[in-house]
C-alpha cells in the first residue's frame, strides 16, 4: 500500500485494550515511520496537542463518562484554526447513530467502525486523510431543492406524484418553461421573493417548451458563472439521436428519456434522486445566492 511518510498520530481512546490493538494495526501498516501518542481522556488529549503537532487525530467516540470524542474535536476547532484530519472510531453496536453525529460535526473527516480483525479500511482512511491535507469536513447536506421545468401540466403532476409516492426529502419546485426557469434561478420577476433561498441542487429540464426551450435554457445556464455548476438532467420524451448529442454538447449532465407509464416514471425518479442526492456530491451546499 502506498503510504506517505507519517510522523505523529494522536489517539484518543479510553480503553487501554482497544488502544493496544489499534496501535498494533497502525504499526503493522506503517512500521517505524509512525509515532503514536495515546491520550486516555479529553484533558490529556488537549494537553498533548498543546505541546506537539499531529498529522492525524484518531478519536474514539465514547470516552466513558468524559465528553464524546466528537465533542472534543469541536472544542479543538474553537481554539485551533486548522485541525489535522480527524477519524472518529466506534465499536459496532451504535455505529449508525454515531455516523449521523460524526457526519454533522465539522472537522470530522471520516467515521469508521472499529475492526480489529481487518485493518484495511482504517489504513485506507488514514491514507486518504493524509493525502488530502486540506481541511476536510464530511459534507453536511441540507435537504436540497430540485427544480423541474416542463410545459406539460400532466407531466408535472405525475412527477410530483412520483416524489410523494417515494416520500422524497427533497423539495420539488415547478416552472412551466425555459424563461420561467431562468427567472427562478436568477431570483427575478415573479421569483424575486426567493432571493434569500439557496439555489436548487438539481435541475430537471424538459427539451420542448414554449417561450424558451430546454436547449436555449441550458445554453444560458451554462453561460452564467453562478448557475453553470448546478447539475442539469434533461428529462424528455425525445429519443432523437440529434437531441441526445446536442444535449450533452450543450453541457447537460445527463439525458433521461421520460417513460410512458407511471410506475416506470416513479422508478426512474427514484434512481435519479438516489444518484444525485446520496451518491453524488453536489455543489449546492456550498452555494449562497448573490445578495
Amino acid at each position: 500500500m502506498n503510504t506517505p511518510a507519517l510522523k505523529r498520530i494522536l489517539l484518543l481512546e479510553d480503553s487501554a485494550d482497544d488502544a493496544t490493538l489499534i496501535v498494533e494495526q497502525l504499526q503493522q501498516a506503517f512500521g517505524k515511520t509512525v509515532s503514536i501518542d495515546i491520550a486516555s481522556d479529553s484533558h490529556h488529549a488537549t494537553a498533548l496537542t498543546a505541546d506537539a503537532d499531529y498529522e492525524l487525530y484518531l478519536v474514539d467516540y465514547y470516552l466513558g463518562i468524559d465528553v464524546t470524542g466528537v465533542d472534543w474535536v469541536l472544542t479543538q476547532r474553537q481554539s485551533q484554526s486548522l485541525l489535522p484530519p480527524v477519524i472518529v472510531l466506534t465499536g459496532l453496536d451504535d455505529a449508525d447513530q454515531i455516523e449521523l453525529v460524526a457526519s454533522n460535526a465539522s472537522g470530522v473527516s471520516y467515521f469508521l467502525k472499529k475492526d480489529f480483525s481487518d485493518s484495511s479500511d482504517l489504513i485506507r482512511a488514514i491514507n486518504f486523510a493524509l493525502k488530502n491535507r486540506m481541511q476536510m469536513n464530511l459534507p453536511v447536506y441540507d435537504k436540497i431543492t430540485i427544480v423541474m421545468a416542463d410545459d406539460d401540466y400532466d407531466d408535472q403532476l405525475l412527477v410530483a406524484d412520483a416524489f410523494e409516492e417515494l416520500k422524497l426529502e427533497s423539495r420539488l419546485d415547478m416552472v412551466n418553461d425555459g424563461e420561467a426557469l431562468l427567472n427562478y434561478l436568477r431570483r427575478q420577476g415573479k421569483y424575486v421573493d426567493l432571493i434569500d433561498e439557496k439555489l436548487p441542487g438539481l435541475i430537471l429540464l424538459d427539451l420542448n417548451m414554449p417561450r424558451m426551450d430546454g436547449r436555449q435554457a441550458l445554453t444560458e445556464i451554462r453561460a452564467d458563472a453562478q448557475l453553470r455548476r448546478i447539475p442539469v438532467v434533461l428529462l424528455t420524451t425525445s429519443e432523437a439521436e440529434s437531441d441526445l448529442l446536442q444535449g450533452y454538447d450543450l453541457g447537460a449532465n445527463s439525458y433521461v428519456v421520460k417513460p410512458v407509464n407511471f410506475d416506470d416514471l416513479v422508478a426512474i425518479i427514484a434512481h435519479i434522486t438516489t444518484y444525485w442526492c446520496s451518491i453524488v456530491t453536489l455543489p449546492s451546499s456550498y452555494y449562497r445566492p448573490e445578495a
Partner: peptide, 26 residues
C-alpha cells in the same frame, strides 16, 4: 478522495458530469 469545496465547484464548472467522493470501505 478530495472533499474540498473548491474541487467540487471547479469540477462542475469545468463540465464534470458528476463528482463522487471515494468511499473508505470496500
Amino acid at each position: 478522495t478530495s472533499q474540498a469545496d473548491e474541487d467540487i465547484l471547479r469540477s462542475y464548472d469545468l463540465g464534470a458530469n458528476s463528482f463522487i467522493v471515494k468511499p473508505v470501505t470496500f
